[in-house]
Simulated assay, not measured.
Amino acid sequence: MMKSAILASLIAAAAAFAPSKSSVSTTSTQLAGVDFSKEVGVQAPLGFFDPLGLLFDADQAKFDRLRLVEVKHGRIAMLAVVGYLTTDAGIRFPGAEGIPGGFAALESGAIPELVWAQFVATVALMEMVNQDAGIAAKGEPMGEFPGDFRNGALDFGWDKQSDAWKRNKRTIELNNGRAAQMGILGIMVHEQLGNIPEVLPGH
């Protein structure tokens, strides 16, 4: 019964992402006077896709804030997928060999309090260091684009590349982040259903 309820909720969630000819997002760009259809990440087959109408009557500042959130969630999801697959393969940091993977690590209480403190401190430090990249200072954000956390210090040759190359790399990151968000959600659902061995190889 529980599995049927989960399956039904997943089907309902997937239906919400079905493309619609009369999309609210089409009018949102007209009302705000901003055309988001040329933004990075808008591509076939869905094109500009805003089924929830989050950009209804939005300006560029709101779009940039939502894009920043999307990029950050995508990066976290990519780390989560890699981390899950790594621990599922039995790889651990020295001293953490006894900590189980997945939800079992949280349920067992095997993670030491010091590790939680280090985690919270690291996230807080990263947010403080990168806050200027997402906040407009004197009308201009510090980063070149939402999610640019170089903070004027890191480059790795980015500024030497063409605009087309940069756009391509940003599109790749967005797509990988979107796939990872769906991927980690799927892994979490399958773990709760108890069929991870059927989904992940090597079991």
Rank of each mutant, 00 (worst) to 15 (best):
M1S: 11
S4P: 01
L7Q: 09
A8Q: 14
L10H: 01
A13I: 00
A13S: 11
F17M: 11
P19M: 13
S20R: 13
S20V: 15
K21L: 12
S22I: 08
S25D: 03
T26M: 08
T27I: 08
T27M: 10
T27F: 10
S28N: 15
T29N: 07
Q30Y: 06
Q30K: 06
A32F: 03
G33T: 11
D35L: 11
S37L: 02
E39I: 00
V40C: 00
V42M: 03
A44R: 08
A44Y: 11
P45E: 00
L46Y: 10
F49D: 07
F49P: 00
G53K: 05
L54V: 12
L54T: 06
L55S: 04
F56V: 00
A61C: 04
D64Q: 03
R65Y: 08
R65L: 15
R67F: 14
L68H: 14
V69C: 02
E70S: 06
E70R: 03
E70T: 03
H73S: 14
H73M: 15
G74L: 01
G74E: 07
R75D: 05
A77S: 15
A77W: 05
A77Q: 07
A80N: 01
V82Y: 02
V82D: 02
T87R: 13
D88I: 01
G90K: 03
G90I: 05
G90A: 09
I91L: 14
I91M: 10
R92K: 15
F93L: 15
P94C: 02
P94F: 10
A96H: 09
G98T: 11
I99L: 08
I99K: 07
P100Y: 08
G101I: 04
L106R: 04
L106D: 15
E107K: 07
E107S: 06
E107H: 05
S108Q: 04
P112Y: 11
E113C: 01
L114R: 05
L114C: 02
L114Q: 12
V115M: 10
V115D: 02
V115C: 04
W116D: 13
F119K: 00
V120W: 10
A121L: 15
A121Y: 04
A121T: 12
T122D: 11
A124W: 12
A124H: 04
M126N: 09
M126Y: 05
M128P: 00
M128H: 02
V129M: 11
N130F: 09
Q131K: 15
Q131D: 10
A136V: 10
K138P: 00
M142D: 02
E144T: 12
P146G: 01
D148R: 03
N151S: 07
N151H: 07
G152L: 05
A153I: 15
L154Q: 10
D155E: 14
D155Q: 09
D155W: 04
F156N: 08
F156Y: 11
G157K: 05
W158E: 06
Q161S: 09
D163C: 02
N175F: 09
G177S: 08
G177Q: 04
R178P: 00
R178Q: 13
A179E: 05
A180I: 06
Q181G: 08
Q181K: 14
Q181M: 15
G183A: 15
I184D: 00
G186N: 09
I187M: 09
V189A: 09
H190Q: 13
N195P: 02
I196Q: 00
P197T: 03
L200D: 06
P201A: 15
